[in-house]
């Protein structure tokens, strides 16, 4: 079971005067999981719906495994789709929901049930086969929806913010499970989300979208540590905005000299984006200030430091942060990673 290549070329879509997609290009390698990430209205859901055939493109081309399916109706595309929520048929049992796609394909009853149970086993819900949607938790419902989408052995799996209606703990759990199952079945998958943590955790590659185009497409590490634009940097993680002076391809921020991601930046004053993880606590350093807040995030903590005229965020292991309650004086430095100019 291997996935197929999916390619979207020059997709355009507008609703009245609003441009939802403005010449979007995206290719998914066979078996790959690509997450589309972006704020609402950026066109990520439209992209997914065009691939599913639930909407028409105004222009552009969609190919799956080399075949042009731009004008194939959605019910002939063989896509498995998982919706945000509430997509299970409420009058059918879990088993019948999962078997429904095969019923539409006129598979024999025994074959349908066998396949449905196989899928339910994959998502760990065999016990619930006889129940109805309203008897399941939100997380269980989404697992069933996933099993239903996979039961038809889809060419491509489409996930439209499948975790957004769930609470935080279930969300993380189900996210990892979706990834496990996707790797197991090997289906090429497009995952749409507005949650950057989710996208970075689950995807082979992440496409950050803005105004109907992909702003940057790359591995999670790339996106996070080498954002191509300030929009990506700010969308993908918390960022400090600090003033500095650019000179000869590097920037001086309060005494820390940092390399620039784009060495061609003209000299002068600039605002640069610095990740909290790049700000570290040192016994003595160029930046000094007072801790005004400590936020525990689990294994790591984030402290807010007042530098007098501005504040910066620094992320550090919780063991170190406990030694710095609010009010402590602290010295900081900035790791010389390449930085972006805002």
């Amino acid at each position: 079971m291997t996935g197929v290549e999916v390619s979207l070329r020059g997709l355009h879509r507008r609703y009245g005067s609003v441009v939802a997609l403005d010449g979007l290009d995206l290719t998914l390698a066979p078996g790959e999981l690509v997450a589309l990430l972006g704020p609402s209205g950026c066109g990520k859901t439209t992209t997914l719906r065009l691939l599913a055939g639930l909407e028409d493109a105004d222009g552009g081309q969609v190919t799956v495994a080399g075949a042009d399916i731009t004008h194939v109706p959605s019910n002939k595309r063989g896509m498995g789709m998982v919706f945000q929520a509430y997509s299970l048929f409420p009058h059918m049992t879990v088993r019948d929901n999962v078997a429904f796609g095969l019923k539409l394909r006129r598979a024999a009853r025994a074959e349908r049930d066998r396949r449905a149970m196989e899928m339910l086993e994959l998502v760990g819900l065999t016990e619930q086969a006889g129940r109805y949607a309203h008897q399941l938790s939100g997380g269980q419902q989404q697992r069933v929806a996933l099993a239903r989408a996979l039961a038809i052995s889809p060419k491509v799996l489409l996930l439209d913010e499948p975790l957004s209606a769930l609470d935080a703990k279930v969300r993380a759990q189900l996210r990892d499970e979706i990834r496990r199952i996707q790797l197991e079945v090997g289906t090429t998958t497009l995952f749409v989300t507005h949650d950057q943590e989710e996208a970075l955790a689950i995807a082979d590659r992440v496409g950050v979208m803005r105004d109907g185009r992909i702003e940057q497409l790359g591995t999670p590490t790339d996106i996070y540590s080498r954002p191509a634009t300030s929009f990506v940097a700010e969308f993908v993680g918390l960022t400090n905005r600090l003033h500095g002076t650019v000179a000869a391809g590097s920037v001086n921020v309060r005494g820390c000299v940092l390399p620039l991601a784009d060495p061609a930046t003209p000299d002068g004053q600039a605002t640069v984006l610095v990740r909290p993880e790049a700000v570290t606590v040192v016994p003595s350093g160029p930046l000094t200030g007072t801790v005004i807040a400590v936020t525990f995030l689990g294994a790591s903590s984030r402290i807010t430091v007042d530098l007098g005229d501005t504040t910066v965020l620094a992320q550090l292991p919780t063991s170190e942060a406990t030694a710095l309650p609010a009010g402590s004086a602290v010295a900081l430095t900035i790791r010389p990673d390449p930085v972006l100019v805002a």
């Binding site: 909407e55 028409d56 493109a57 105004d58 004008h71 109706p73």
Partner: peptide
């Protein structure tokens, strides 16, 4: 405005 959806 072409395609199956517009038609439907």
């Amino acid at each position: 405005m072409t395609g199956l959806h517009a038609r439907r």
